[in-house]
Computed example of a mutant assay.
Amino acid sequence: MDERTEQEQRTRQETGVGGHDSRAGGTDAATEAFVAHRNLLFTVAYEMLGSASDAEDVLQETWLRWAGIDQETVRDRRAFLVRITTRQALTRLRTLRRRKESYVGPWLPEPLLTAPDVAEDIELADSVSMAMLLVLETLAPTERAVFVLRDVFDLGYDEIAQAVDKTPAAVRQIAHRARAHVAARRPREVVSPAQSRSALTAFQQAVETGDLRRLLDLIAPDVVLLTDGGGVVRAALEPVVGAEKVTAVLGRLASASLHPAQVNGCPALILRTGDAIDSVLAVRLEGGLITGLYAVRNPQKLSRVERETAMGR
């Protein structure tokens, strides 16, 4: 069974769709279009929400609306599906913002184990990286939607306007404002996968051997460590700032089992205790040094690092 067939069967199971119905193949046509664009739709929702579980819920809601539409009236199925997904994600994003206000400790995006093809698409990998998703968190909901649809997926202003219920002129202004906001906060240099792997390998070796002096050589003086335990497991409730403080925390990981992995399209480390995943550690590199460390420990956010998640543009 090939990957496309497996995905179609999975989508049918998730959406409750059977093989045929009385609408003369209408459901089959809807399912075919949904399956063809599912990776794109998931990626749009995930980049807007930073949560795979919420992105999956958005896809369920998208399917319910899509399945009820007369396929003969749709000229551009991809654009129509993106429009539904964006609207559903915007509604959920506003709910998530209220939920995050009561979150215990720093909130980090839900990490995803991604396939090599995501890393090969440099722009896609950058857009779903932990560092970029945290930058996107600083945008207002509509700004985030416009930025994602325009700068990541290269949708036209007219299409985006329909998705966010704004005029094309207003969307252009929002895109300009969001782009400037992101540019001021994102890493200023593009780091190649090879550079990331090299830095992470050196970092892993220093942690595993307890070489604190080597760690200090690898991290920036003003490095920031964010740990997301969600109030479920032990984690710092505030950002840990500064090389010495961060190194002291990392020194406690010498007995941990560290495993390299592709997380959100970028090299990362998965920490295991026994057979269980303890946390996922992603990094932000600038000027050859690690300037940000993101440790996701909340068990509710670690289910998507057991198997690869398909993404696409």
Rank of each mutant, 00 (worst) to 15 (best):
D2W: 14
E8A: 14
E14G: 03
T15Y: 13
G18H: 02
G19T: 12
G19M: 13
H20T: 14
D21V: 01
D21H: 06
G25A: 00
T31S: 14
E32Q: 12
V35C: 07
R38D: 02
L40H: 12
L41Q: 08
M48C: 04
S51D: 04
D54N: 04
D54H: 13
L64P: 04
I69M: 09
V74S: 09
V74R: 01
R78D: 10
L81A: 09
R97S: 07
K100P: 05
V104A: 10
A119S: 15
A119K: 15
D121L: 05
I122D: 12
I122G: 10
E137A: 06
L139T: 01
A140L: 13
V148S: 03
V148M: 06
F153Q: 15
F153L: 12
Y157K: 10
D158Y: 15
I160C: 06
K166N: 10
A170T: 15
V171D: 02
A175P: 06
A175G: 00
A178C: 04
R179K: 12
R185M: 11
R185Q: 07
P187K: 04
P187W: 01
R188W: 06
V191R: 07
V191M: 02
A202C: 09
Q205R: 11
A206D: 04
G210V: 09
D211A: 04
L212F: 10
L218E: 02
V223P: 06
L226H: 01
D228G: 05
G230I: 01
A236Q: 12
E244F: 15
K245R: 15
V246K: 07
T247Q: 03
L258R: 05
A261S: 03
Q262V: 06
G265F: 04
C266K: 15
P267Y: 01
L269T: 03
L269H: 05
G274N: 02
D275S: 11
A276H: 11
D278E: 15
S279N: 05
L285E: 06
L289S: 08
T291S: 03
L293M: 01
L293H: 00
A295Q: 15
A295V: 15
R297D: 02
N298R: 00
Q300Y: 13
R304F: 12
E306Y: 11
G312N: 08
R313Q: 09
